[in-house]
Computed example of a mutant assay.
Amino acid sequence: MSTAAIRQVHTALTWGLAAVWLINGLVCKVLLLVPRHQQIVGRILDDEYAAPLTRAIGVAEVGMALWVLSGIKLRWCVALQMILVTSMNVLEYGLALDLLLWHQLNALFAGLFVLLLWYYGFVLTPARQQLAQ
């Protein structure tokens, strides 16, 4: 892949990954515009605290978007995302499968997202950093 292509793909993935966290955090959880997210949190943690916990998770996801955009300690950021996405999906699969948008297929999409994160953080980012030197 050419230097320009590596930079373009890296930039596109940076903005795309940040958008995923921002939309899921702000729109779906902080603003509670997708009730399914609060239902999942309530099922896993407790219905009584579902709204504030969903909002807190959303704020953390907005923070993740900002971390992605900052580029600071990007491999740590990506590793944490991979852990969070995997653990979150295992919990949801086991405890709230009926509330998931794509039910069993959520596991496939989560796995593909984790692979994309791995490529971005551990293949593409080092290649981009080598080009900068």
Rank of each mutant, 00 (worst) to 15 (best):
R55Q: 13
A56N: 07
I57A: 15
I57P: 08
G58I: 02
G58V: 05
G58H: 06
V59T: 02
V59Y: 02
V59I: 12
V59N: 01
V59E: 01
A60W: 06
A60H: 00
E61Q: 12
E61N: 03
E61L: 08
E61P: 03
V62H: 05
V62A: 07
V62I: 14
G63N: 04
G63L: 03
G63R: 04
M64G: 15
A65N: 07
A65W: 05
A65P: 06
L66I: 14
L66E: 09
W67Q: 09
W67D: 07
W67V: 08
W67M: 07
W67K: 03
W67N: 05
L69H: 10
L69C: 08
L69W: 12
S70H: 00
G71E: 12
G71A: 11
G71D: 11
G71Q: 11
I72D: 11
I72F: 15
K73P: 03
K73Y: 14
L74P: 01
L74T: 05
L74W: 01
L74A: 03
R75L: 00
R75G: 02
R75Q: 14
W76V: 10
W76Y: 10
W76G: 09
W76F: 10
W76E: 11
C77K: 04
C77P: 06
V78Q: 01
V78M: 05
V78N: 01
A79L: 13
A79P: 03
A79F: 10
A79N: 06
A79Q: 06
A79I: 07
L80W: 14
Q81A: 15
M82G: 10
M82W: 11
M82K: 06
I83T: 14
I83D: 05
I83R: 09
I83W: 13
L84P: 00
L84I: 12
L84V: 13
V85K: 07
V85I: 15
T86R: 06
T86P: 07
T86S: 15
S87F: 13
S87N: 08
M88I: 14
M88P: 00
N89A: 02
N89C: 06
N89Y: 02
V90W: 10
V90E: 06
L91D: 08
L91V: 05
L91T: 04
E92L: 00
E92N: 11
E92T: 03
E92G: 12
E92A: 14
